[in-house]
Simulated assay, not measured.
Amino acid sequence: MSLPPCEVSWFSALCDDDYEFLGVPDTRLQSSWEHCRDIVLQADSLGFDNVLLPSGYALGIDTTAFAAAIATWVKRIRLLMAVRIGESWPPQLARQIATIDQMLGGRLAVNIISSDLPGEVLESAPRYARTVEAMSILRTLLNGEALDHEGEFWKLKLKPPRIGTVSGRAPQFYFGGLSDPARDAAAKGADVYLMWPDTLPGMRAIIADLRERAEREGRSLRFGYRVHVVVRETEEAARAAADRLISRLDGDTGAKIRANSLDSGSAGVRRQAELREASGGEYIEDNLWTGIGRARSGCGAAIVGDPDQVLAKLEAYRAEGIEAFILSGYPHAAEADLFARHVLPRLDHRPLG
């Protein structure tokens, strides 16, 4: 069966998520303009299609400011800029998105995060309802259309801003979340549904459910997969590298890291914990290692193996309908180089069109 090319993205650690040893802070790897800039420029030079710029209120540096700055440095790579809806006024966010897209020559995509306003907590259902409204407002304005919106959270009647995207259309919205309200929000407003690691049967069930929800909305979705990688020339060396990564991590430190995350109680985080517990922190299926989740609240598994095994795992995901991968490893710069050397040239990849 012929599969469409997949998008292969890397990850820049804007939220202080870079380590040589998980759970052991390293000042050289903390989020800063210089460190995160270097990761993006390396991903650009290595041939990755896109790079995720994550966002967190309490950690690291501001994503929108960073995206605007790095847009003037990169040559060919796309940027996947995360935006926290709870912190944004949609008309202003639309202008920021359009401006950065112009700076990039049209190479911007947006990762929509259904966040709270810092200092406030909104229940899941209304928070995702607000996110659906925001996506609708953003899409209308970024499509260059006049807005007449009467919603629960915003009542706006506006002409579109003068500045628009290079294409004249809204960039692709990437969006993730495992709860029912999150899945409904994706079906109503997203372009690419992002999922965290799961077993192949679990992934099939999620994709089937999201396709059905989108069809009920008269829409379709594409699917992305966020996962860590540990690739070495042999499986033995890859497993040794994975073990080394958590070799200085104690249980209390890992639990504190997981508990401190803003999304530590979400359905997606619970699913990552279920996979880790079911595997005993080892391999939940061939080459999918959950030990990395001992010190992470979110994406909690890694593909571990030699180049053939890592490639086979990615191709298996592609066969299930995954068209976009967001990969990362520790330290991010070193693992990007290893993946680009051993696996990336063997994948049929290009940016999502």
Rank of each mutant, 00 (worst) to 15 (best):
Q102R: 11
G202V: 00
M103S: 01
Y128A: 10
L108N: 00
A134H: 01
Y193W: 14
A129T: 08
L156Q: 01
T140V: 13
A185E: 07
Y128C: 10
P160R: 10
S124E: 11
K159S: 15
L141V: 12
P181I: 06
G119Q: 04
P181Q: 04
E152C: 09
G164Q: 14
G168T: 11
A146Q: 14
Q102D: 08
M195N: 00
R183K: 15
H149D: 02
I137V: 13
A134R: 00
A182Q: 05
G105A: 07
Q172E: 13
G189T: 10
Q102N: 10
A190P: 07
L138E: 03
A186V: 11
L122F: 02
L156G: 05
R169D: 11
P197Q: 00
Q102C: 11
Y128T: 02
D191N: 15
L147T: 03
N111S: 03
L147S: 06
V121N: 10
T165I: 03
R139N: 09
A129K: 09
A182W: 05
G119L: 04
P126C: 13
G105K: 04
F175P: 01
E152Q: 13
E145R: 15
P181V: 09
E145C: 14
R204E: 15
T131L: 05
L104F: 00
A109E: 05
Q102Y: 02
G151H: 05
A125V: 15
L117C: 12
S124F: 00
V110S: 01
I112E: 02
G164N: 09
T99S: 13
G189R: 07
L200H: 07
D101C: 08
V166Q: 08
P126W: 02
M135N: 05
L117N: 10
F153L: 12
W196G: 07
V132F: 07
E133P: 04
A170C: 15
A190T: 08
G164T: 12
A186H: 03
P197D: 01
S115Q: 10
P126N: 06
E150F: 04
A187F: 08
A109V: 00
A129D: 12
F175C: 13
T140G: 13
P201L: 10
W154Y: 15
R204I: 13
R107E: 03
A186T: 12
L108V: 00
V166I: 14
A185H: 05
P160I: 06
S124T: 03
S179M: 12
R169M: 09
V166T: 09
T99V: 04
S179Q: 07
A98D: 03
P201V: 05
G151Q: 07
G119M: 06
A125K: 14
D180L: 12
P126F: 05
N111H: 14
R130G: 08
T140P: 11
R169T: 09
V110I: 13
D116Y: 08
K157I: 06
P171L: 06
G176H: 02
R169V: 02
K155Y: 05
A98P: 00
L158Q: 14
L178M: 14
R139P: 08
G164R: 05
G106T: 01
D148G: 09
D184S: 11
G119V: 10
G144R: 04
P181L: 06
G168Q: 08
G164K: 07
T165D: 05
S114G: 14
G105F: 04
H149I: 05
D101E: 05
G119P: 04
R204P: 04
F173W: 08
D101V: 06
G176L: 07
I100V: 09
I112M: 15
I137S: 03
I163Q: 14
K159M: 15
P171Y: 04
